[in-house]
């Protein structure tokens, strides 16, 4: 069975928890066991937040340093702070204007999600834009674009407006250059 360990990090209010949840629900839909660990409480007031997501047969809720397959960073600075979780050759998807400038010896894919959010009039959707972008790189995440779209449709089945804006943000990331 496929196993995957992913770190999702950002600051309180950016929707780190929401992205973690969508991925975990996608795992359930695919029939895979899943466990996540989240940051709640005071740090949610704009402080650094981090989620651990483990898909597959695991008994520990946390990821050890150098064991993560990938890192989704909603803030550029978080690569410095949480990059040590990545295993050798572990990938990162980062919200930053210029990923080439990043000093990291592992594959990094950057997207200016803040700018895209403003352009798409979806200021609160930086998280979904980054997730959409991550899904573009096939074979990186355990799930695909369709899986996440299905999770969103299921989640917002009775809230059409929210669903449309979430889909729009996800698409904006997925189709970004």
């Amino acid at each position: 069975m496929t196993q995957q360990q992913i770190i999702i990090s950002g600051v309180g209010g950016q929707g780190v928890l929401f992205v973690t949840r969508l991925l975990a629900e996608a795992a359930i839909q695919k029939g895979m066991p899943v466990v996540t660990s989240e940051t709640h409480g005071m740090a949610q007031r704009g402080g650094t937040v981090i989620s651990h997501l483990k898909v597959g047969d695991f008994s520990s809720v946390l990821i050890r340093p150098r064991h993560a397959d990938g890192l989704l960073a909603l803030k550029e600075e978080n690569i410095l702070q949480h990059g040590h979780y990545l295993k050798e050759n572990g990938w990162s998807i980062v919200n930053c204007p210029d990923s080439k400038a990043m000093e990291i010896d592992k594959p990094v894919y950057g997207i200016d999600a803040n700018r895209l959010a403003i352009e798409n009039q979806a200021r609160r959707s930086v998280n979904l834009i980054l997730l959409g972008y991550a899904l573009k790189f096939r074979g990186h995440l355990f799930c695909g674009f369709k899986d996440i779209k299905a999770v969103l449709s299921n989640r917002f089945s009775k809230r059409e407006k929210l669903l449309n804006s979430a889909m729009k943000a996800l698409n904006a990331g997925y189709h970004a250059a």
């Binding site: 209010g13 007031r45 704009g46 402080g47």
Partner: peptide
């Protein structure tokens, strides 16, 4: 031992 960078995270603040 894995050296964990001493990067100060963002401190929480009133909204």
């Amino acid at each position: 031992n894995i050296a964990i960078p001493a990067v100060p995270g963002k401190r929480p603040t009133l909204c």
